[in-house]
Design a protein around this nucleic acid. Structure first.
Length: 399
RNA sequence: GGUGAGUUACUCAAGCGGCCAACGAGGGCAGACUGUAAAUCUGCUGACUAUGUCUUCGAAGGUUCGAAUCCUUCACUCACCA
């Protein structure tokens, strides 16, 4: 039992520090039922969760299945600083209302995956607001600049002659201090959080908490481009609240290589199954497209249900395999004789008439499935289906 | 506080007082090929019913027939010195 639990817990991890401690906690749970705490911090800087977040959430869920009590930390205080992780420049700070609104949406979405009876949501402003100047100074004395500069992103920026704000030095300290307050047994985070996560251990020691948290790091999920990490700001993400057909379509658009990565980090399928599929694809007995479709179906099913997943697939196949039209598209009514470019802008499928002209010149625009080439065209009364590229459609009523 | 260097579009980055809506690369969009995949090739990439007009090169002023380019002030960044 303990063996299986540990296997589930270690699946897909990038690095674990103090695995022994995790083993002890889990086996103690199976011995006498005593629970332990697992901390994970979320920065309420964006409103919606995407698949990148779910990698961590699923791991938390795994802990919950084996005696872990999750401390879901909303970094509302630290969000006012901005985590320097992976940033090449100082991040813009957010105002309080936005942060609170984001935190709220987070909580609504998180319990898609987490068991809320085993989750405690905490805000770090609760204790950080109380810390005060003296507390901050005491906290800052536990660390020094040279070690802070060891951090890769600071180091790069420092050597590259870019600005680092003093407040950014405080970020790792404050995140680590959260672990002191929460007396966490384990903290999990992305590999890019390593420095911050280790800070938790350092500070738990410095403040004599009586234990040092184990640290479990998950790989960073690449975004749809397969290169950069999935993030809202890079617009390469799949949000968990997106429409089923969006999730389906976006999943299908990832490269074959990246698909295996997604399987590893996101799918519930066992590692053996995945390996078998991979071999079959290499042997040529299994088409990679089928494998990708299954992944897309699994993801839609997770956030909605099987029925909607099937629908999403049917819709997708209709539109792109049989070249039919999507079942729903934006509809607008316009006046007779409207200029085609204007109509495209009004329908929201082109950002400007200039762009519309360019696209028409490049054979990207069609009316009722017929490509057009005249960018001075005016529409006579009637109903038309306008299309730009492969995926932007609109129904226009003229007259 | 002093000295010097810098700020150009989504990002990096070139830019000689007129040939600058601004080289190039990445990204993005579109076309071909496909499995709406990747890779590859090609075109486009400020706005405007448009061979022209308008707004853009950190901000505000100025010099000039004409300024991204020269001058002044301000803001921000970096380096060295204190």
């Amino acid at each position: 039992m303990v063996e299986k639990a540990l296997e589930e817990i270690s699946r897909g991890t990038a690095e674990v520090i103090d695995m022994e401690r995790i083993e002890n906690l889990v086996s103690k749970y199976y011995d006498d039922g005593s629970t332990y705490t697992v901390k994970a911090g979320f920065d309420p800087t964006g409103a919606d969760l995407h698949l990148g977040h779910t990698v961590l959430l699923q791991k938390l869920r795994a802990f919950q299945n084996h005696g872990g009590r999750v401390q879901l930390l909303i970094g509302d205080f630290t969000a006012t600083i901005g985590d320097p992780t992976g940033k090449s420049e100082t991040r813009k700070i957010l105002d309080n209302d936005t942060i609170m609104a984001n935190a709220k949406t987070y909580q609504e979405q998180v319990f898609n995956i987490l068991d809320d009876s085993k989750t405690e949501v905490v805000f770090n402003s609760t204790w950080l607001n109380e810390l005060g100047a003296a507390g901050m100074v005491a906290l800052a004395t536990t660390f020094n600049v040279a070690r802070m500069l060891e951090r890769d992103d600071f180091d790069k920026r420092f050597k590259g002659g870019q600005s680092i704000s003093i407040s950014e030095f405080l970020y790792p300290l404050l995140q680590g201090y959260d672990s002191v307050e929460l007396k966490s047994d384990i903290e999990i985070g992305g590999t890019d959080q390593k420095f911050n996560l280790l800070m938790g251990r350092h500070l738990q020691r410095a403040y004599n908490v009586g234990k040092e948290q184990a640290v479990l790091m998950m790989p960073i999920l690449e975004g749809l481009d397969g290169v950069q990490k999935m993030s809202k700001s890079l617009n390469n993400y799949i949000g968990i609240t997106e429409e089923p057909k969006e999730i389906y379509a976006k999943t299908l658009s990832v490269s074959d290589e990246l698909m295996w990565r997604y399987y590893e980090l996101l799918s519930e399928k066992s590692l053996e199954e995945i390996t078998t599929m991979k071999e079959d694809v290499e042997k040529g007995t299994l088409h990679p497209k089928i494998v990708k479709e299954n992944l897309a179906l699994e993801l839609v099913t997770r956030f909605y249900n099987e029925e909607l997943a099937t629908l999403a697939k049917e819709e997708f196949d209709n539109v792109f395999k049989s070249n039919q039209l999507p079942s729903d598209m934006t509809e607008i009514e316009v006046e007779e004789g409207i200029w085609i470019c204007k109509a495209l802008v009004d329908a929201g499928i082109e950002p400007s008439t200039s762009q519309a002209r360019r696209d028409i010149k490049q054979n990207a625009v069609s009316i009722d499935q017929e490509k057009i080439s005249d960018d001075t065209l005016n529409l006579a009364a009637g109903e038309y289906i306008l299309q730009v590229g492969k995926r932007k459609f609109a129904k226009v009523k003229v007259g």
